[in-house]
């Protein structure tokens, strides 16, 4: 804090980076898109509200925006009294759906990551497994739902199976691609410095593949969420999918839209979280892409 030292020799960091002058242009460049997005969304909901209130469409099909938000707020701030069989609260169903989703995702990771790594690392495993992987990955998973209902009935097990099948293939395929595309020069560098086969996997292939695996999980979350909703719509007595089905059956449009809105929010937050995670574990890739 002494005046002499700071005036004689400026601190090291001030040489290279100086704070930009505040200006509206600078402020706008940084925050402008946020500002526009907020205005944009506000206008969207106001137009929706006005349109719904005008009575052009029956409230059975289109609720008012305010009605939807109210249902959403109430649904998320209340829980069912203990002992009740079916809860009208969105929060309970959200919790249930998330639990099945994350259980399914966890199982998909436990199966998918080693499977993908093995397929990338071993030609025999790759040759044997790849026709099944491609066949199942290209099959629309909804087509399997009736089969699983036949096998397991309307159970949590059935729902989790569908989520696992939805999420596991992007994880396998990404991990596999990660191993396959590991830079040759990194491998030969490690070999020159004495890496054995195990070291190559542990210290080169796996760290290189990690961001691929995370982006596989990111795709898996998207697919898994579809899996959850489908499984619950087809057969279930709990969860967001069930709530949509029930809202439709009872012509409760504001509940239906509230759940759809919630699905958008959940999906976007999960995907943004994995994006952040990917950038966090592999900052070099983020720079490559820019």
């Amino acid at each position: 804090m002494s005046v002499q030292s700071s005036s004689a020799t400026p601190p090291a960091e001030s040489g290279r980076y100086t704070d930009a002058q505040w200006s509206f242009a600078e402020f706008w460049r940084r925050w402008g898109s946020w500002f526009i997005t907020i205005i944009n969304l506000t206008c969207f909901f106001i137009l929706w509200e006005l349109f719904a209130r005008s009575g052009a469409i029956s409230p059975l099909f289109l609720p008012t925006a305010s009605g939807m938000f109210e249902t959403l707020y109430n649904g998320l701030t209340t829980t069912a009294p203990p002992g009740s069989v079916i809860s009208g609260s969105i929060l309970d169903h959200l919790g249930y759906s998330m639990m099945t989703l994350f259980t399914g995702l966890a199982i998909a990771c436990v199966i998918g990551i080693p499977a993908g790594l093995l397929m990338g690392g071993n030609r025999a495993v790759e040759t044997i497994l790849s026709p099944y992987i491609w066949a199942l990955a290209s099959l629309p998973r909804i087509a399997l739902v009736p089969l699983f209902i036949l096998f397991m009935g309307f159970t949590v097990k059935m729902q989790i199976t569908i989520i696992v099948l939805s999420a596991v293939f992007p994880i396998i395929i990404n991990a596999w691609a990660g191993v396959k595309t590991t830079e040759k020069s990194l491998l030969s560098a490690a070999r020159v410095f004495g890496a054995g086969k195990w070291d190559l996997y542990r210290k080169v292939v796996f760290p290189y593949t990690l961001p691929f695996i995370i982006s596989g999980i990111q795709q898996g979350i998207g697919r898994g969420l579809i899996g959850v909703v489908i499984a619950e719509i087809f057969g279930g007595s709990r969860g967001l999918g069930y709530l949509i089905q029930r809202a439709a059956d009872t012509f409760n449009s504001s509940l239906m839209y509230a759940v759809l809105m919630l699905l958008v929010i959940v999906s976007l937050s999960l995907i943004n979280f994995t994006r952040w995670l990917e950038a966090y574990v592999a900052p070099w890739r983020r720079l490559d892409r820019v």
Binding site: S185, A189, V192, G194, K203, Y208
Partner: peptide, 18 residues
């Protein structure tokens, strides 16, 4: 095989980015 008596410098650096 490789040995500690030899080391290499690569054209594309081959540094582990992580």
């Amino acid at each position: 095989g490789p040995g500690p008596d030899r080391a290499m410098v690569f054209q594309d650096y081959a540094l582990m980015p992580w």
